[in-house]
């Protein structure tokens, strides 16, 4: 669904150009994953957090790093391990002898883009510390509340749950992530380019900032303004109604998930210069938004989020 639809009348041509530049820059680094890159950006523009689930070594960390560079965001990476403590994420109060007071040393979460690597390797206690921060955009330590920097964007990567030593995120916490995407193996020709080309880390260093944090904030403010017509909302609601009635799912989409779907579709429409949200925008983001929120009653029925998305879309007529 990456077909370029001509902008009908772009309200902010400058921002649109910025987005194209960012996409182009990121595509230089992450080869052949334009859809995923666009979804990442859409997730970011919709003020959502992103979950990348895939086996190690397909470029999850590189993608996060490239995003931080391209958007000029301060970047911290937290490697989740089974002995990670909440203080390792949030920070810790230390007693300073000279002042005779506790001073709060801020943890890695005080950063604009946080990469939570292998989030399902940590214990639920450590996971929840991060997830609270994601939801509230603030952290509380020793009774003191500290606001996080804005924009604040978490990319969490997770290993497939069948791998050993993992604590799967419960469904309620999965819901905190706007989207879940998978990167997958590269095509053969692109893999050859990877083998022949320069080290990705060198390329990263050369990547220039395409969007400044100020522009990003403006962008994020513009996304909810994208018009969603009554016909489009009918469609979104029809999708939600279908997931709630369909016997193949344990439970349907929650209202929060429906809002998330609309926001993501608005961001997608904005990125593609649509004046209003089109059903095609909803369709483009739907697999990533609902894939981790709908649990199939029969585990073997769907192989991945894409199949769940296709199943839902095929069942709901476009108004």
């Amino acid at each position: 669904m990456s077909t370029a639809i001509e902008p009908l009348a772009t309200s902010e041509p400058a921002l649109s150009a910025l987005i194209d530049a960012a996409v182009a820059g990121l595509n230089e680094i992450i080869l052949g994953k334009e859809t995923q890159v666009r979804l990442c950006l859409a997730c970011l523009f919709a003020r959502g957090h992103l979950l990348i689930e895939d086996i190690p070594g397909v470029g999850k960390t590189t993608l996060a790093h490239a995003l931080a560079r391209s958007l000029g965001l301060s970047y911290q990476r937290i490697q989740f391990t089974s002995d990670l403590l909440p203080a390792d994420i949030i920070g810790v109060s230390v007693f300073e002898a000279e002042t005779g007071q506790f001073r709060f040393h801020r943890g890695p979460v005080f950063s604009q883009l946080v990469l939570a690597d292998e989030v399902n390797r940590a214990t639920p206690k450590a996971q929840s510390a991060l997830l609270e921060a994601m939801e509230e955009h603030q952290v509380t330590a020793d009774g003191q509340t500290y606001p996080l920097t804005e924009p604040f964007f978490v990319i969490a990567t997770q290993n497939p749950s069948y791998q050993v030593g993992t604590y799967p995120l419960p469904e309620s916490q999965l819901d905190r992530f706007l989207m879940r995407i998978a990167l997958g193996y590269p095509a053969a020709s692109l893999e050859r380019q990877l083998l022949l080309g320069r080290d990705r880390r060198d390329l990263l260093a050369e990547l220039s900032t395409a969007i400044t944090p100020q522009q990003l904030l403006r962008l994020q403010g513009a996304v909810p303004q994208v018009h969603a017509s009554a016909a489009l909302l009918d469609y979104v609601q029809a999708v939600a109604r279908y997931t709630r009635q369909a016997p193949e799912f344990e439970a349907g989409l929650s209202p929060r998930a429906v809002i998330a779907l609309l926001r993501a579709a608005q961001a997608w429409a904005f990125m593609h210069g649509h004046e209003g949200v089109l059903p095609e925008d909803v369709q483009a983001v739907l697999p990533s938004v609902v894939g981790h929120r709908l649990a199939a009653r029969d585990d073997a029925r769907f192989r991945d989020a894409g199949e769940i998305g296709q199943h839902v879309l095929a069942a709901v007529a476009v108004p």
Binding site: L8, H227, L232, P279
Partner: peptide
């Protein structure tokens, strides 16, 4: 068709 598409999108899904 392109005309139809743009007009249809504007009428159905556009803001104004």
């Amino acid at each position: 068709l392109a005309d139809i598409r743009k007009l249809y999108a504007a009428l159905r899904y556009g803001p104004a």
